[in-house]
Design a protein around this nucleic acid. Structure first.
Lengths: 242, 242
DNA sequence: TGTACATCAGTGAACGCGCGTTCACTGATGTAC
DNA sequence: TGTACATCAGTGAACGCGCGTTCACTGATGTAC
């Protein structure tokens, strides 16, 4: 009964997986706009209408792809974070792990990166299931910052002297959910780091470094190192003595 | 002769402008993927085939829009940079001008921002005419950095101690074309600043700050201030005394 | 100033295309007694 | 173990749609003598 019912279910899930795999391949070839149920059905040698047993509509399939992309990125980020913590490296090694993984994932899955951080598909509302993996990614990224704060070793570059209540209020959800107890300028520095990473990866991926930055991986490594210094997770290596 | 010939040409240019205006409006409504010659023709109350007197193909029209977007952004950036320099403000005012203008332009023209910094249209090669305005934008942005370097007041946060020849080589086109004479780490800091600005604006524009950063304009202002400190154009305001 | 000709703008019909989605259906797989 | 019935997967034809692009054409605008 329950065993046989799940037999059918298992087949259903398997086919759903095959459809998603083909859809991912098409996404990589044509981009989100070119994703078509008919072409997926063609590749699977199936009638287009059969797909409606698995997805309610094209939008539902796209949603599944988006959610999958978020999940995949978050998984990788968590995996590499845990490896860095388990590996016994220093703070810099821990800080560097997630950004490098993000870039590697982006290069391996450019269209899925676009789905997450590129221009939104017009007239399409991002599904709610997207929030949880987004938070997992962010938490993996900022964990060294939170740790440094708890250790009392966090040294963010001070910029605002004080009297920035409005900014503190604007960042309240981030502070509360992600960086509890950190001073506002440190939260802002963390947001800057996130924006810089997303920007650096997107610029490279979208072709803006062509003929301009000849070795993006070197610039990215330097960028991550500089962000370690400005967020205050690691002391800057080249500080003048004195 | 030359006068009458340019009479026809003038009408041609005018109609071209009207087509581009309608196309821009459609772009703002539907995004790049939804841009269609037929719908533009419909709005202009013209046969679709008539458009081929003005543009060779849909791609040619899209190219014109992209080039226009780059030009518009670069124009605004230069305008605000020049205003800041003419206005007699301090270095911070000069540094802040272009980033704020970029953000304002992005908010006013979200789909044109996507055209430039969003996911590239698949199977579409960006036109060469895009390079010149890109450089104009970059030059307007980094002008305060170049000035500070020439004045000897540039204080970029040091990160790499030395022995970074490969990075210097990778950044050679940027250094030569945009930041001549600046040390490698300052060039890298400038690239970081650019990436952070693009990232911050894109994240806001693409909806990633929804329910998270409640007042993006405050965070952006803080981000720009922090970048002033880390690039070294302006001393950080809150430095501890001593 | 007037006429023959070339150039250009715009028309309207047609081409072939691929798309998402619906619907009535066939047949196989599982369920209940 | 056997039979009647329900559930589900997948078919194939059809719907109506909008698209980019081509082509032969009409008529107006400009050109040359």
């Amino acid at each position: 009964m329950s065993a046989t019912r799940s037999a059918r279910e298992r087949v259903h899930d398997e086919v759903t997986g095959e459809i998603l795999a083909v859809a991912k391949a098409h996404l990589a070839r044509e981009g989100a706009a070119g994703l078509s149920l008919r072409s997926i059905a063609r590749e699977l040698e199936i009638a287009p209408s059969a797909l409606y047993r698995y997805f309610d509509s094209r939008d539902a399939l796209l949603s599944a792809l988006i959610i999958g992309a978020y999940g995949s990125l978050a998984d990788e980020a968590e995996r590499s974070s845990q490896a860095a913590y388990a590996g016994g490296g220093d703070t810099m090694a821990r800080w560097v792990a997630v950004p490098l993984t993000m870039r590697a994932w982006a290069l391996a899955h450019p269209h899925e990166w676009s789905l997450i951080f590129g221009s939104p598909v017009p007239g399409y509302q991002a599904p709610q299931e997207t929030i949880a993996p987004y938070i997992r990614l962010a938490q993996a990224l900022v964990r060294p910052i939170v740790d440094a704060h708890q250790d009392g070793t966090l040294r963010p570059a001070p910029v605002r002297s004080g009297a920035d209540e409005p900014l503190a209020a604007a960042l309240q959800p981030v502070t509360e959910g992600l960086l509890p107890g950190l001073p506002t300028n440190a939260v802002a520095q963390s947001m800057l780091a996130f924006a810089a990473l997303i920007g650096a990866i997107s610029l490279e991926l979208f072709g803006h470094f062509h003929n301009t930055v000849l070795a993006p991986e070197l610039l990215f490594a330097e960028t991550v190192a500089q962000l370690a210094a400005s967020t205050g997770v690691c002391p800057s290596r080249g500080d003048p003595p004195g």
